[in-house]
Each structure stands twice: as C-alpha cells, then as structure tokens.
Amino acid sequence: MLRFILGRLAVLIPTFIGVSIIAFSFIRLLPGDPVMLMSGERVMSPERHAELMSQLGLDRPMYLQYLDYLGGLVTGDFGSSIVTKRPVLDDFLQLFPATLELSLCAIIVAVCLGIPAGVLAAVKRGSWLDQTVMGAALVGYSMPIFWWGLLLIIFFSGYLGWTPVSGRISLMYFFPQVTGFMLIDSLLSGQAGAFKSAVTYLILPTIVLATIPLAVIARQTRSAMLEVLGEDYVRTARSKGLAPLRVVGIHALRNAMIPVITTIGLQVGVLLAGAILTETIFSWPGIGKWMVDSVFKRDYAVVQGGLMLIAGVIMLVNLIVDLLYGLINPRIRH
C-alpha cells in the first residue's frame, strides 16, 4: 500500500510542475507586461518602468523568475492581489469554505438520490420507472445549469417567494466565522432562525450544482448495476434463495459501486466548473465567483494564484479518490 501511495505521489509531481508553468506563463502571455498591468493605464516614464521591473525581479532570466515563483508556491506564497494587495492565499482560504459547503451539499444530494435512482432503474429495467429515471437523467445531463438556476429563481424566489435570490444568509444575522461553513456556524451562534435562514439560502444553489452530477451518477449506477446483475455470483445468490433485497443491496451493489466511486471522484472537476456558474447566478461568495470577478477586474495576480490553488485542490481530491479506490479494489494496487 505504501508503494502504491508513493507511486501516486510521484506521478503528481510532474503534473504540479506543469500546472505551475501554465499559471506562471499565463500572466506573461497577456498583452502588455506585468508592470503595465499592475500600474493600470497610467503613463509611465521608461526609467520608472525599468526601476519597477528590476524591483519586481522581472528583468532577470525567465527560468530564475520561474524558480522564484515555484519557491514561493512551496512556501505558500501565491502572490498578492493587484487591486486589494491582499495575499491570494488569504482570500482563497476565506472564500473556499463557501464553495466547499455548497459542493459538499451538492454531492451529498447527488449521491443520495442518484445511487438509489440508478439501482431502481436497473432492477426494474425496461419499466416505466426505468424510462422515467433515465429520461430525467438525460435531461439533467443536458441542462445548461446557468439557465436552470435562473428558472428556479423565477419560480421559487419570484413567483412563490419561498427562497432568497442571492447570498449565503440573511443580513439580519451576524456571527463570527468559526468553521466557515454557514450551516455549522449558524448553529454554533445559537441565534434563533439563523440555521433556517442559512438552509433557505443554500437550497437553490445546491439543486443547481447537484443536477449534472446527479444525472451522471444515476446513469453510471444503472449501467454498473446491469452489468453486475448479469454475473454468475448474483445468479448463485438468487438461486440460494436469498431475499431479493439482500442480493441487490449486498451482493450486487457492493461490486457495482467500484466504477460509481470513480465517477463520483471525477465529479469534483465538474463541481468546481459548475461552481463558477452557480456562484455567479446566486452571488454566492465562493472561489468560483471570485475567479470570474478577478478575470473581469483584470486582477491577473489573483487569477494566476487562483488557478494554481484550484488545480491543487483538484489534484489533491483526485489523489484521495485514487487511494480510496486502491483501498476498496486491491487489484489495482499492483
């Protein structure tokens, strides 16, 4: 197992370096040089320009600049925002819990609905239930989620007035951030109604973000279950006279879960891409909205650092999924 973990880590290092090269070169690919970008549109004398260049170390050879950048990354220096001058890492750590909370809720919804739906569809193959579930899954899979979010706002916030349109919690409530998770913090604050408010703010973004993973998980579970249900050991279990629920729930589901877990792991990238759109629609103060805002504010130092951090999160999650996968399926360890 240790060799397996080390092997996985070894593969990660070149990817990390590659990602850092992309993030490093990104700012240098933009028209104009970093000094001009940071100073805005002001007119600058050539002397002042040269002075700033050497101050920032930008007149040195490219590879030295890159090594500096890499050294910074390793020590946790992801640069500072051009606009607010705050370190990118601080902003990221402050905003990331919001995205994480939303993503976790979405993936929980997707798993808790998607797996049973897929299992039911597989067991009742060809029935109206199967057709309805798979039809809905295909619609969900094809859904432009930014439009889906707007529709939900029109109906639930506009027409019914049940849910708020944007933000994480009502402005009535104010309490210190302990964990960064609004659901937990609102409970810890002990304020009446705070938790309920946080939930109502969370519902629509969660539905929107969960839509595509839910559809993908349901489809994947169904096809994995169908494959497993045709296996000899399932037939044996049936012919032994085991209860159908036991055959499906224990014998079949456990083996069908292996590809499904890979699928769930792959949804992390989907979730973060979806978070960009979902957070923009619902003004959810997470890293997706932060990145979009930074692109529009031309705060390229934040975009650069954010790219690196988000890619880091995805690589980390993929590593964890790989390791978990090795844990449930010993065959791939070798």
Partner: peptide, 22 residues
C-alpha cells in the same frame, strides 16, 4: 499523457475562461 493530465487538472470551464481572458 503528462501534458494531458495537466490540462485535466483544471476545471474545463475555468481554463476556457482564463484562456479567453488571455
């Protein structure tokens, strides 16, 4: 394959967004 891993390490929409910004 390493290069492809690098591209896949970014959420596709984010990478596309940043590329378009460039």
């Amino acid at each position: 394959m390493r290069i492809m891993d690098i591209i896949l390490a970014f959420p596709s929409l984010l990478l596309a967004l940043v590329l378009v910004a460039v």
